[in-house]
Simulated assay, not measured.
Amino acid sequence: MTVIFEKLSRRGAISWRKKDNILIIEEYFAILKLAEGRDGFLKFLNQVATWQNNILIQEAYAARCLTVETEAVRKAQRKFALLTKADIQRIRQNARDNMSVIPPEQLDCIKEFDIFVVRASAPSAQDATEESGLLLALGHYDGEKVEMAMYDEVKHNLINSNDD
């Protein structure tokens, strides 16, 4: 599944904006997914959350490995002073093998996210903003249900709520 999502992302059908947890979907791909019906679209959104959570877990694991391996090598260097490259590699591998599992509750997993549907003519996901006219629809997925609206239908409410 992750390979498929990576391919979709590379081809511009979907994009993930990590800083604010926004799924950006190109309009034709969105139409295809919506044509699968409510259950099909919810399944797709669950898969998106799984894809992004997998990335978060991989990043956390890589960071944890680096920290655990570095600490193990430093500890060994304090104890033995002179280590060969083979010693360091063995110490790092042993530290990685004995590393504890990261409890899922310690990770900031994605449980909900916003959805932007952008025009196919958008040169990039970053260009698909309200001002550019390339944003077609907005939505929010809370892990169980999705709410979507055409941007033109909610534009007035969004603009007025920003003035407060």
Rank of each mutant, 00 (worst) to 15 (best):
L45V: 07
G37A: 07
Q52V: 12
I25W: 03
K19Y: 12
D39W: 09
F29Y: 08
L23Q: 03
G40L: 04
N21R: 12
K19A: 14
E36N: 14
F41V: 05
T50D: 11
A30N: 05
L23H: 02
E26F: 00
A35Q: 10
G40P: 04
Y28Q: 14
Q47P: 06
I31C: 15
V48M: 03
I22T: 15
I25D: 01
F44S: 02
W51A: 01
L23V: 04
N46M: 12
K18Y: 13
E36S: 13
L23T: 01
W51T: 09
L23A: 00
Q47G: 08
F44A: 03
L32M: 14
G37I: 15
A35E: 11
W51V: 04
N21L: 14
I22H: 07
N46L: 10
D20C: 14
K19N: 14
K33N: 05
W51K: 05
Y28F: 15
I22D: 03
L34C: 07
Q52M: 08
G37T: 09
L45Y: 01
E27G: 06
Y28D: 13
I22W: 05
A35R: 10
L32K: 10
K19H: 12
K19S: 13
L32Y: 08
K19I: 12
L45S: 01
L42N: 09
G40V: 05
G37L: 13
E27H: 05
A30P: 00
T50S: 10
V48A: 01
A30D: 03
A30K: 00
W51D: 05
L32R: 09
I24V: 11
F44H: 01
E27W: 05
